[in-house]
Design a protein around this nucleic acid. Structure first.
Length: 208
DNA sequence: AGGACGATTAACT
DNA sequence: GTTAATCGTCCTC
């Protein structure tokens, strides 16, 4: 069972709410781990200042500008990987960041990859945590999620937006914070509390 | 060539 | 509530 590529059109803002409840499965490393998504964010292309694609294609963001159905993985804060589902037509950057989910198969492997997690609900609560559970990273950047024999696949995608999907501002960004392009399963314990973005390190103060 | 900063997390007080 | 960890990417000389 797999998801047809055409279902990932036309762009991230349509796809993102429908990804709530979708199941992504990873066989990376020979262990099967599957996650049911509870929180995602839409990122558009050159018209979305919060998107990695805002300034046009670069080697890092090439996958975002490619055909739908591929995984866009990026490295951040010097230590974490996060993963997106590319969903726009070829040539138009559009992707959905996978922010949180519930592990539905392979919980024991997820705990092995996330030794800091003490409770099951913390395994994939947060984008870098989710990526760690499924072993998503450099090796899976560009993976074809619509290929039934690929190491990472979209196993199911609800045909319609489910009831109980809420939306609001995206987490951790410092521009375009007014766009309510985060979608989550209302009341789910794996969903992030909102946190505005901004500098995590003080800019040099001229008075020092 | 140099530097600022980040779609974050874990470990603190 | 705060802060350190840590390095690839991209912008600005």
């Amino acid at each position: 069972m797999f998801v047809d590529r055409a279902r990932l059109l036309p762009h991230s803002r349509i796809l993102a709410p429908r990804l709530i409840g979708a199941v992504l499965v990873s066989d990376v490393g020979g262990h099967e781990v599957a996650v049911r998504l509870t929180e995602v964010e839409a990122y558009e292309g050159t018209d979305d200042p919060a998107s990695h694609a805002f300034r046009g294609p670069t080697p890092r963001t090439a996958v975002m500008f490619g055909p739908p159905g591929h995984l866009y993985c990026y490295f951040t804060y010097g230590m974490h990987w996060c993963a997106n589902v590319v969903c726009g037509p070829d040539g138009a950057a559009s992707a959905v960041l996978l922010r949180a989910g519930t592990i539905v198969r392979g919980v024991e492997h997820a705990f092995a990859r996330r030794p800091a997690a003490r409770h099951e609900r913390d395994l994939a609560r947060g984008p870098a945590r989710l990526a760690t559970c499924l072993a998503l990273g450099r090796d899976t950047d560009g993976a074809d999620l619509c290929d039934p024999s690929a190491p990472v696949r979209l196993e199911s995608l609800p045909s319609r937006r489910r009831p109980g999907v809420a939306s609001g501002p995206r987490v951790g960004i410092s521009v375009a914070i007014e766009r309510p392009w985060r979608y989550w399963s209302a009341g789910d314990p794996t969903v992030s509390s909102y946190k505005a973005g901004g500098r995590t390190r003080r800019r040099a103060d001229p008075a020092d």
